[in-house]
Amino acid sequence: MSHLHRVLISLSILIVCLTGCSRHIDCNSVQTQANTPSEDGFTGYVVARDGNSILVVDPAYEDFGANKGESRYYPAKWFSNAPNPQIGSYVEIWTDGSPENQPYPGQARAETIAVSCPANPDGAHMSEEDAIRAGLYSSDGEQVRIPVIENVDFDKHIGTWTIRMRDAMSTTDTQDQIEVKVEDIEPVSEQE
């Protein structure tokens, strides 16, 4: 009886470990089946969705102010063939190599999508992804045409997330940053 008891406990621990591992793999997994390309993909936050297309904006801007051009340029692209990543996710996307449409924001077809695991600070009910989604769906967030997520902070003492964003369509350094406060309660699901 003691040997059977040990075997059952070992199997239970193995099942719990495998279940935990599979959940971890989900958020770092490739969402579309393809060989992982060798070049770096396009990274950024998913800030909008239209059917199977997502708008991804990279918070790292290029400064063109020295060339008498627009002072800030935030790379942004609509990717088709992207049914899974939720708004608020941080992703890396590789395209299929077909020509990309260049009007801003650009357009491309996603071949491979890797979704990063969202941060879930101690004491928080929501993940960073959930807080970003709630901030984008807030009245202040909905005023931004192409949101750039610049920073996300959680204050566990007051149970509030602060999402700092700006509009990618405003290219000046002087454009004010929008700060959206989100109460840490229930996660917000995507709106259809």
Rank of each mutant, 00 (worst) to 15 (best):
M1H: 11
V7G: 02
V7D: 08
S10R: 07
L11Y: 06
L14F: 13
L18E: 04
T19C: 12
G20P: 03
G20E: 06
S22D: 08
H24V: 11
D26K: 11
N28H: 14
S29D: 10
Q33K: 15
P37K: 09
S38Y: 12
E39Y: 15
E39M: 11
F42M: 07
F42R: 04
T43A: 09
A48Q: 05
R49S: 13
V57F: 01
Y61Q: 06
Y73T: 07
Y74K: 02
S89C: 08
S89N: 09
V91D: 01
I93T: 08
D96M: 11
E100T: 13
Y104P: 07
P105L: 04
Q107N: 15
A108F: 03
R109F: 12
E111I: 08
E111S: 15
T112A: 15
V115Q: 10
S116N: 06
S116F: 03
C117M: 07
C117G: 01
P118R: 03
P121K: 01
P121I: 05
P121S: 01
D122W: 05
R133A: 07
R133F: 10
L136K: 07
S138C: 07
Q143Y: 00
V144M: 01
I146Q: 01
F154N: 02
H157G: 13
H157A: 13
G159I: 09
G159F: 04
T162E: 03
M165Y: 01
A168I: 04
M169K: 14
Q175V: 13
D176V: 10
V180I: 13
V182R: 03
E183S: 15
P187R: 02
P187H: 06
S189R: 14
E190R: 04
E190H: 09
